[in-house]
Design a protein around this nucleic acid. Structure first.
Lengths: 141, 141
DNA sequence: AAAATATTGATAATGATTATCAATAGCGGA
DNA sequence: TCCGCTATTGATAATCATTATCAATATTTT
């Protein structure tokens, strides 16, 4: 996922790529491995755009989430964290380390089985969210 | 899970079964199929104990969570919901219907495979949380 | 350039949860 | 039984992330 890519999707949805939105997107693009809070996005974005406000950050993040450019997740149960969603849109999962609090992504997809069973029972599955809590290999020594 | 059962675990943990705690527990026991918010627990509990306060509800719920009598979950991302945890302590999962917002439990456990793979990579999995979002059979017609 | 519209940023409002603290309840010992 | 100690409670204030409001600014359209 790169800026040009996002740019098209923005204008398709009727949004302009303002400097503020560009700054916010660049923060997310430059931190693809992280899961940032709105405040963290604000702080990073202010390095390029010192006057950007927190309201703009929240608004922009919400817009990007609603057009599936970002994923919004709550891990620790106090604030939301945002990340660029995978280009291939594969559902992906998380391991949250209970010691160092790092968040590691799991690309595997063993859920298809389960979903197939549920759909056989009449459910229609649109999205799924799987989190493991435990210790990462570093902390598990 | 019944009251006598819980009573023992409470006193083992050094807590007394006060009338307030009893009222709160009875609410949870009588709503095993639901996932109640703190406010809903308060309203129900007040039918037996009109003067019980919200602070007591939060405190008691937290205590019960910390001794694994209750599970605490956030589904819609605005407030926590509480339920009696399974007696057999099987990890269980949820389907949240995007139309009627009902929460249905899934007793299946296809996660063992995944966990085994993760543990082979050095992780130690302590807990997991799996939610499906979609339409329940009733809403999927 | 003027008018209409979209976007922004400061700040107030919201709402769930947590912290505080004085009042009360319940227990153990004299 | 009465006293004193500790646990518990309930009212309320504080917290804090997020959302709403709204005037100011920027951008597009006419």
């Amino acid at each position: 996922m790169n800026l040009d890519n996002v740019k098209v999707r923005l204008s398709n949805a009727g949004y302009k790529l303002t400097p503020q939105r560009k700054a916010i997107l660049e923060v997310l693009i430059n931190n693809q491995d992280k899961h940032l809070t709105a405040e963290e996005v604000l702080n990073e974005a202010r390095r390029e755009m010192p006057n950007i406000g927190i309201a703009t950050v929240y608004r922009t993040l919400d817009n990007l989430v609603s057009m599936d450019i970002l994923d919004k997740n709550m891990f620790e149960g106090e604030r939301y964290r945002y990340e660029l969603s995978d280009a291939d849109n594969q559902p992906h999962h998380h391991i949250i380390c209970l010691k160092c609090n790092c968040i590691i992504e799991v690309e595997e997809d063993l859920l298809h089985n389960m979903e197939a069973q549920l759909e056989a029972k009449g459910f229609k599955i649109i999205d799924r969210e799987l989190k493991f809590f435990g210790y990462c290999p570093k902390c598990n020594k």
